[in-house]
Write a protein that binds this DNA or RNA. Sequence first.
RNA 1: AAUGCAGGCUGCCUUAUCGCUCCAAAGCAAAUUUUGGUGAGGAAAGUCCGGGCAACAAAGAGUAUCGUACUUCCUAACAGGAAGGGCUUGAGUAAUCAAGUACAGCUAGUGCCACAGAAAAAAUACCGCCCACUAUUGAGUGGGUAAGGGUGAAAAGGUGAGGUAAGAGCUCACCGCUCAAAUGGUGACAUUUGAGGCAGGGUAAACCUUACGAGUUGAAAGAUCAAAUAGGCUGACGAACCGGUUACCGGAUGUAGGGCUACUCGUCCGAGGUCAGUGGGUGGAUCGAUUGAUUUUGUUGGCAACAACAAAACCAGAUAAAUGAUAGGGCAUUUGAGUAAUCAAUUGACAGAACCCGGCUUAUAGGCCUGCAUUUUUU
RNA 2: GACUUGGUAGCUCAGCUGGUAGAGCAACGCCCUUUUAAGGCGUGGGUCCUGGGUUCGAGCCCCAGCCAAGUCA
Length: 139
Amino acid sequence: MSHIQGNINTKFPKKERLSSKKLIKELFLKGSSFYLYPLKVIYLPNVAAESPVHQVLFSVPRKKFKRAVDRNFLKRRMREAYRLNKTCLSQNISGPPLLIAFIYIGKEKCTFAVLDSKLKHAFRRLDEEVKTNQNTASS
RNA sequence: AAUGCAGGCUGCCUUAUCGCUCCAAAGCAAAUUUUGGUGAGGAAAGUCCGGGCAACAAAGAGUAUCGUACUUCCUAACAGGAAGGGCUUGAGUAAUCAAGUACAGCUAGUGCCACAGAAAAAAUACCGCCCACUAUUGAGUGGGUAAGGGUGAAAAGGUGAGGUAAGAGCUCACCGCUCAAAUGGUGACAUUUGAGGCAGGGUAAACCUUACGAGUUGAAAGAUCAAAUAGGCUGACGAACCGGUUACCGGAUGUAGGGCUACUCGUCCGAGGUCAGUGGGUGGAUCGAUUGAUUUUGUUGGCAACAACAAAACCAGAUAAAUGAUAGGGCAUUUGAGUAAUCAAUUGACAGAACCCGGCUUAUAGGCCUGCAUUUUUU
RNA sequence: GACUUGGUAGCUCAGCUGGUAGAGCAACGCCCUUUUAAGGCGUGGGUCCUGGGUUCGAGCCCCAGCCAAGUCA
């Protein structure tokens, strides 16, 4: 992670997206989660990862939003918010990279500003949880 | 001119910063980096039809099943479209015009038609009408009849005249209907003539009949690549019947069973064991996959749908799935303030490609065009 | 992407071949009981998802749409 430090990296290439079916299955089976309205966050440390980057997935359930336009819209907004704020996450957390799923569980569309702040909250909380897990595991 | 309805066309623009998909070029051992280009629709939607394409053994015949149903044409094909015919409704004195139309056949057969009603389909007589007899009348019996009343969504051709005891297509005229012929039309059909005297209530979006069409399954089809076991597949031998010189050889059969569409025919495979070969799913990658019944323009043919020819163009190709975010300006909408200029706030229709095309259906703010209706003003 | 079901009272469901739409629970009233529950008697409650069509007449038949639920690697 040290080689990234210094530059403000706001890119979001395909490597950072979670696209393997196997890993997605594993994440949803074994991952731990917390709620932060309007988001649900599921995460899992990826021990067998080859590259030291977090992989992220965004999802909007079809039951809440019927039309594909709305779902795409929310996914894009979440992705954008992640792209702009991901530096604080990648700098804070040490150890194996994470697999993260952000699931939108709100019933109505929210603005970009709200999503932005919520995502920051989520990062902080993720940070804490991972640290406590590591401490308990090491002790 | 305004409002409403219906149809068609269009479907916000722009600047800066950051970011994503794919392509091209350059550099590097590689990850990748840099530069340039490129990137949602008229419905991408619903999945309601029709094709292409792919696999299923060669994709055969009949039945079943499913679908379609006025005619001709267009088309790769269609339940789509164009032109026309019939019917229905509306307007009109009429000619005609407009709109709609799942529009083959109840005269092949079967079924159904509640309640009411005498009777709901080869029927029948409640109130009636008429005649005869009994007989005393405010009636009964037998017969004729179906015009009138009544029931019903629907009552056995309609109107008028003759006729009759009363009536009745019983007879006649006109209209309707059925059948036949002629003429016109590619045809649906139309017109005319003749005959029949009425047989034939409705319902096929009831079963069904007739004609025509459809093999089944869908890109989660399918093909290729990398590594390994089993199943699988292919070939040879063997096995079952006959003969012989019987651990073998030769000949013949096509059984049990299975497959090809649900069934039948037909047709194909065809026995457990042994050996050899081939091949090989685990969610990967590549192809399929975007150059095509393509788009634009023009010419010609056709009433039109559309077709032919010529020229030019390449216009998304993702794959847990790109096409976005923020800020500013303009355009338009709505609201508030204001005499107004304007200011402030808000909103930006329906909706997001997933193999590709042709249709249909449904959704659609605002703007523009066309038609119809209503109202007002002017001439 | 390819498909399949369903929508009827507040809830869960019936409704056969088209002919006045029903059951159980719930609600309300009365009886019973000191009271409640249980039990008994009675009452009300329906845009049969929506819009067209066929028919004399559609919950049912046909077409179009809306909304749910589910299946296929």
